[in-house]
């Protein structure tokens, strides 16, 4: 019963890069740090015993600096990278054990991903990019263009259907990326630093729009970011990663008020000072100050 409440359930997930992956689980090495293992075995730990659950309709933010394993985690969830050990369950079904054919079905129907550098097809117009997920399922032109136009409208790009990605700004390209993910009507969205490449003003606007979109659609979202402000703004719950491990997991308030260790406290300090600034200023000037910075 407990499992059914969770849309995504990740249990004891490990990802080890390198040839000596199996040796890491020997009692001799299992408790050593990431850099010790890298020195002694040449194996790089991408994920270390990661466990969490995401409820349907929830936005779960994974936050960490580069190299903390957050992108590896996102890729493991959709099996672009195969995890070394552990289990990933979607609606109770373990996707690590599924066959090639089941995996293709799972990727086509249940999950969709948004990429940091958009991952759009440069030789296709917006409409054909957005319809791509339906096209490879063999869905006819009329139906897939219908769904694609709807998704394009949802992200506010109507009128841009015939443009090519290189004719658009970064923010607009990422809207195409989001529309492409929405067009297949997935249960789960994986978003790997979708706004990291955008300039601050556009980024904030996109965050607001994603929030509004989520209020409408209630998708289950796993959102990867290196920006704690973004995490706090978007996340129902946040997991903070370091060296492939989750060091703290909980709602934003808890992360800010009760950081689990110095590492998290360091992040939170930035946010607290921003919050103080905002609290001290009046509303309009705070917006102006934020825009300038």
């Amino acid at each position: 019963m407990v499992q059914n409440e969770q849309q995504i359930q990740v249990e004891g997930l490990w990802k080890i890069f390198g040839d000596n992956a199996a040796l890491v689980f020997e009692p001799e090495y299992i408790n050593k740090t990431r850099s010790e293992i890298q020195d002694e075995l040449g194996a790089v730990i991408g994920l270390r015993d990661v466990s969490f659950g995401v409820k349907p309709g929830e936005t779960f933010v994974v936050m960490g600096l580069s190299g903390s394993g957050k992108s590896t985690l996102a890729r493991c969830l959709i099996r672009l990278i195969d995890a070394t050990r552990g289990a990933i369950r979607f609606d109770g079904e373990d996707i690590l054990g599924c066959s090639e054919k089941e995996l293709t079905e799972f990727r086509r129907k249940q999950i969709a991903m948004v990429f940091q550098h958009y991952g759009l097809l440069p030789h296709r117009c917006v409409l054909d990019n957005v319809a791509y997920g339906l096209e490879i399922q063999g869905i006819g032109e009329g139906e897939r263009y219908g769904a694609a136009r709807e998704a394009i409208e949802t992200v506010g790009l109507d009128g841009w259907e015939d443009y090519f990605p290189h004719e658009m700004s970064g923010g607009m390209q990422q809207r195409v990326g989001i529309a492409r993910a929405l067009a297949v009507d997935p249960d789960v969205l994986i978003m790997d630093e979708p706004f990291s490449g955008l300039d601050p003003l556009i980024r904030r606007k996109m965050q607001d729009e994603l929030k509004a979109l989520q209020d409408q659609l209630h998708k289950t979202i796993v959102f990867i970011t290196h920006d704690l402000n973004e995490a706090i703004k978007l996340g129902d719950r946040i997991a903070i990663m370091r060296d492939g491990e989750i060091v703290q997991e909980g709602p934003p308030e808890e992360i800010v008020t009760r950081p689990a260790d110095e590492y998290v406290a360091d992040f939170v300090q930035d946010v607290s000072s921003v919050a103080e600034l905002r609290a001290g200023a009046t509303e309009p000037s705070a917006v102006g100050g934020g825009g300038g910075g």
Binding site: L80, E105, R107, I111, M113, F115, G119
Partner: peptide, 23 residues
């Protein structure tokens, strides 16, 4: 070819043949 575009094609459930032909 940009590996992220190939990843994107795979993430949407493209078969290897579809990745080759369409991307």
């Amino acid at each position: 070819v940009d590996p992220e575009v190939v990843e994107a094609a795979l993430a949407f459930g493209s078969s290897p043949w579809q990745v080759l032909r369409k991307v």
